[in-house]
Amino acid sequence: MKKSFLALALMSAFSGAAFAQSSVTIYGIVDAGFQSLDNGTVAGRFNKLQSGQENGSRLGFKGTEDLGGGLKANFVLEMGLNVDDGSSAQGRTFGRRSTVGLSGDFGTVDLGRDKTPTFKFFDNYDPFASGYINSGNGLSNLYFIGGTATVAGANANSGGRASNAIYYYTPGNLNGFSAVGQYGFGEAAGDNSAGRSLGLNLRYAANGLDIGYSFVKDNGQALAGGPINARKGNTLAASYDFGIAKPVVIYQKVSDDAALAVDQKIYTVGVTVPFDATNKVLATYSNIKDSTRLSAATTATVGDAKQFAIGYQYTFSKRTDLYAAFASTSQDANSQKVGAAVKGADVKELTFGVRHQF
């Protein structure tokens, strides 16, 4: 018994020494609220409690260790949670992010699974920060953000995230310039292109001006020797913070290599208006012009969709806020965007809820 206690004491001492060399943080977001959604289904409107409307609910662990000479080791393990029923999100244990890497004067290199650069791009420029509307996905539900490349015949990415990927982030001392690069392995035997994903962000932010470019390309896994369908998106955004308001414009062109090639252009104008330290209003107007042909036998196209959205946030503290938003989408007869139950259906959504960060 005495030996057991001695061993335990020694283990505790060594464990304490190990933890003293590094830091580990437990963090998370708990977000839930009411959603009323009319997506054109015959049964009528959905009224439900929904998790992760302003931000996806999550539990995360992140840590860093100083290796000396300016070099650090870093890791993040972040799982998605559905507060409304207590289940796991993203269909995997750490589906939001699971990365390990090194950082230093050269920047940061991470290995694993994370948001695509284009998803991160919309987190920065979307007034709704990829939340509030469109079932908590913000403008990223209108634009192509990647995460569609397939790996070994299964969807190992999904939801604007790339698995089996290498990420590079430039250091933060480049006078307002920054970049993010991502390469995701398709892991297909004998074919380095099938299932591969690529991403790039370029950004300049200084003195209120914020200009960015994002590129994303996802290669579909070739089936039975068939061709790879590569889908790509090029996105531009610019905003300026006047203090009393922060307007933004966003443009994206999407195309692919399918037999009926996607030909889509999306435009957004938006604004964030902070009335004071606790109140702010958000608004966007988006126009999707989808010129994708309906079939090889006709020149008819999918057509247009238009969305107007407005939101409000009241901040109680640095950790807790209330939010509300309304979005209305109208579209042409052959368009079926933002979760419409049938082609041509208008979609109207009202949300409000509470978010707590820890």
Rank of each mutant, 00 (worst) to 15 (best):
L71Q: 11
A259G: 01
K72V: 03
F61Y: 14
F358D: 03
G95N: 01
F358G: 06
K3R: 13
N74A: 08
V354L: 15
Q221N: 15
S88Q: 02
G60V: 06
Q50S: 09
A327E: 11
G138I: 07
A341Q: 03
F61R: 08
S130P: 00
S88I: 01
Y143A: 00
K217I: 01
D257W: 04
F352E: 07
K306S: 09
T93F: 15
V216A: 05
Y213F: 15
A258S: 08
R96A: 04
I310F: 11
Q313D: 07
S317Y: 14
G186V: 07
E78Q: 14
A345V: 01
S23F: 03
S255K: 13
S193H: 06
G243L: 12
A156S: 07
Q331L: 04
G344H: 10
A345N: 10
T148M: 04
F308E: 06
Q21R: 04
N74V: 12
T108D: 03
A206I: 14
S158Y: 06
D105P: 05
Y125F: 15
T118L: 13
R92N: 08
F106Y: 13
V83S: 08
V271Q: 08
D123E: 15
G353P: 04
V354D: 07
G270Y: 08
G68I: 10
V271A: 12
V151G: 05
G146N: 02
N334K: 09
D346A: 15
F94C: 01
A149C: 09
Q21A: 06
G172R: 07
S178K: 00
K343G: 04
K3E: 15
T108L: 11
F326R: 08
T329A: 04
Y312K: 11
A13Y: 13
D346R: 12
A333Q: 07
M79I: 02
N74Q: 11
Y168C: 00
Y213T: 05
G56V: 06
Y125M: 07
L260R: 10
I244P: 03
S15D: 05
N155D: 14
S286E: 10
